[in-house]
Simulated assay, not measured.
Amino acid sequence: MSDLSSAVDPSISEGTSGFDTSRIAEVKGWLVSQFEAAGKDVPGFEFTPRSVAHLHALATASQAKTQAAGIVAADLRQKATEYRSQAARIREILENVGLAQESFPQSAVSSVQVLANVANLLNVRDTEMSSYLVAMGDISLRKTGVEEKRAKVQKESRLLLDYTRKAIARLTYLKRILAQLEDDVPSCEAQMHHWKTNLEIMLSKERQYLQQYSNYKAILNRVGYTADISHGVLVEMDEHRRDLEKKTKPILDTLRSYQDLPPDKALAALAIEDKRRQYAAAEKYLEDVLQSALATTE
């Protein structure tokens, strides 16, 4: 019944038939015949337009297939009757000419039986030599084809075996690498923890250095530091300072020597005035040198 249901679309029958009492009677009769043939009772169910259409389609297809099977069976029975009649006629002819099966020796009967079995195996309809040769040639061709397919399959099997071996080798290698990596995990985790700790320290130092840089920059801005005051300018100014110290040192020594002289107000005033002029000239010279150094830097 499953074959019949697959051969017919119930939706088509449902759309064209409708809920018909005649079809319900046909469906009931078909169900009774089918279940009685199986020795069972028809199960109870509700007759709806969809179920009636579906079962009517199954019944129609089943009856058509049953009728076709009956025709084929009748034809086979007729052919069997004809074959039996022909076999009886041939047996009668052979007995009349003295070639009955009972008159042949057992070896000949066995040979004929073997020949018949070979003919059945080769699917030969007669015992002509040409038929045997054609059948043997066909078998040889099929054998050659089978051998070619077998060789092809064996080649593919060898290739698959080679691929399988390579895959197994690679799998073994990957497993070994995985085990090695798993063994290296603790040391790598410890190293990563160490790097993480160092990174946190470096970040803390970076924040500290940035804060110190900001503080130093604020101090430099507060004291009036500019980019014009470079290391070279400071070194040059220090050299001029040393030169001025060398030039003013004799004057200071002379002034100190005057402290040992007896007090003479007029001479002391003249000497002091002279030293003041020299000191003022030295200060002016130092100021000129500093101004010229700053102008050269700019």
Results as ranks from 00 to 15, higher is better:
residue 194 H to M: 11
residue 219 I to K: 03
residue 136 M to R: 04
residue 164 T to Y: 04
residue 163 Y to R: 14
residue 185 V to G: 03
residue 185 V to E: 14
residue 242 R to V: 08
residue 224 G to E: 04
residue 224 G to V: 07
residue 239 E to Q: 10
residue 197 T to A: 11
residue 236 E to V: 02
residue 216 Y to P: 00
residue 153 V to Q: 09
residue 208 Q to R: 08
residue 170 R to V: 07
residue 227 A to F: 02
residue 224 G to I: 04
residue 138 D to A: 09
residue 253 D to T: 12
residue 150 R to D: 04
residue 139 I to W: 04
residue 189 E to H: 02
residue 153 V to W: 03
residue 151 A to W: 00
residue 191 Q to R: 07
residue 253 D to N: 11
residue 247 K to L: 06
residue 143 K to D: 09
residue 205 K to H: 14
residue 164 T to Q: 10
residue 201 I to T: 13
residue 192 M to A: 12
residue 225 Y to M: 11
residue 222 R to F: 05
residue 239 E to L: 04
residue 135 A to V: 01
residue 228 D to F: 02
residue 160 L to Q: 13
residue 186 P to E: 06
residue 222 R to C: 04
residue 193 H to G: 14
residue 141 L to I: 12
residue 205 K to C: 08
residue 244 L to D: 03
residue 147 E to N: 14
residue 216 Y to S: 14
residue 235 V to C: 05
residue 220 L to F: 13
residue 201 I to N: 08
residue 174 L to D: 09
residue 164 T to P: 00
residue 233 V to S: 01
residue 230 S to A: 02
residue 211 Q to W: 09
residue 143 K to T: 13
residue 252 L to R: 09
residue 220 L to D: 14
residue 207 R to K: 15
residue 167 A to W: 08
residue 169 A to G: 12
residue 230 S to N: 07
residue 198 N to G: 05
residue 222 R to W: 01
residue 221 N to L: 06
residue 201 I to Q: 11
residue 155 K to V: 07
residue 154 Q to D: 11
residue 247 K to E: 15
residue 157 S to E: 12
residue 250 P to F: 05
residue 208 Q to V: 10
residue 225 Y to V: 14
residue 217 K to Y: 07
residue 153 V to A: 15
residue 195 W to E: 14
residue 193 H to E: 15
residue 137 G to H: 10
residue 240 H to K: 10
residue 242 R to G: 04
residue 180 Q to W: 03
residue 183 D to C: 02
residue 138 D to T: 12
residue 202 M to K: 10
residue 184 D to P: 00
residue 189 E to L: 09
residue 239 E to D: 10
residue 219 I to H: 01
residue 239 E to T: 12
residue 168 I to C: 00
residue 181 L to S: 12
residue 229 I to K: 00
residue 221 N to K: 07
residue 140 S to K: 08
residue 255 L to W: 04
residue 224 G to C: 05
residue 173 Y to S: 13
residue 194 H to T: 15
residue 228 D to N: 06
residue 208 Q to A: 13
residue 140 S to A: 15
residue 141 L to K: 13
residue 144 T to M: 02
residue 214 S to A: 15
residue 171 L to V: 12
residue 165 R to L: 12
residue 155 K to Y: 09
residue 243 D to W: 03
residue 252 L to Q: 09
residue 212 Q to W: 05
residue 252 L to M: 08
residue 242 R to Q: 13
residue 152 K to V: 05
residue 249 K to Q: 13
residue 234 L to R: 06
residue 172 T to R: 06
residue 254 T to W: 05
residue 205 K to T: 15
residue 255 L to Y: 01
residue 155 K to M: 07
residue 227 A to E: 09
residue 149 K to R: 13
residue 214 S to V: 06
residue 152 K to R: 13
residue 217 K to E: 14
residue 212 Q to F: 07
residue 141 L to P: 00
residue 172 T to F: 05
residue 194 H to I: 08
residue 237 M to G: 01
residue 227 A to Q: 06
residue 227 A to Y: 03
residue 197 T to H: 07
residue 142 R to C: 03
residue 137 G to L: 06
residue 246 K to E: 12
residue 216 Y to Q: 09
